[in-house]
Amino acid sequence: MSAAAGELLGGYLMPYQPLPVLAPEANAGWASLAANAARIRAEIEASGADLLLLFSTRWVSIIGHQMQADPKPEWWVVDEDFHEFGTLHYSLRMDAEFATAYRDAARARGLHARTVAYQGFPIDVGTITTLKLLNPDNRIAASVVSCNAYSDRAETLVLGKAAADAVRASGRKAIAIGVSALSNRMFSRWIDPAQDRIHSQKDDEWNRKLLELLAEGRLEDVSQLAREFSRQANGDSRMKAIWWLAATLGQHNQYTGTVFDYQPVWGTGAAMVGLQPAEAGSGDLEYDEDDAEFFRGDRNVLVSQSDDES
């Protein structure tokens, strides 16, 4: 690994829904997302980044945190809902060495973590969609970490801090990408794609509020607000991607924020947002949430008698 200290060049929020890749012609908003992703792609290419570091809410794990370490995952995935829009064939380039570094950094902070590399492993739809939009020719190596079903805010923050540790130690010039919807209420019936809209006005209003803060570069404020947002607007996976992104990028509000797009995808709020470190930004405001540096295990207060874990 490189001896020079690595750095995080910036971050993005990307939606997980595959429809902008599978069927951009079916809806003007889906086409708009695909078109605006090209602007982000150009920005990333100009940044000199050598690693795209993803956290995807569509890759759910149970055993701690999993880092994809197959250097060239090749397979195909058919979306569980949107199978009639076609198949996502993929051939990706993963930074296996970084996956190992990330695993070690996570373990050093008390997390359960492991690398996975299996032929035919189903790379999640959010990761495939994001990499097809932002890195279609695999010019930049990627790394993906899973979203643990049980982890709460504290554990997710520790996972983000471990990502930053690993970037620094590995010498990578990394861009962090949270793959997640904002409001995640989908239409539970089949709709005419042309009629797509945000599921409810309330979801739309909350999404716009979050995007207003992100446009001001206030990522930590959004991280502090994530629980409330999830309650009010059915946030995707309790907005763990925002917790991870904020922790990975350093837990502050000093960013230049750019909202590249915001569209409905089957009722969900699909936003593309960029966050570049800035000299001056909104200052530290009012933080209510706890912070954690180290993971000390599941809080299972009703352990059974035979449980010998301390």
Partner: peptide
Amino acid sequence: TRTGHHFLGVPHFEGKSVDPIFPN
């Protein structure tokens, strides 16, 4: 599925299924 109840409608499937949660 979040868009209702879906049913397999192809006469034959084959392939490899790797569990994303317990791939080992």
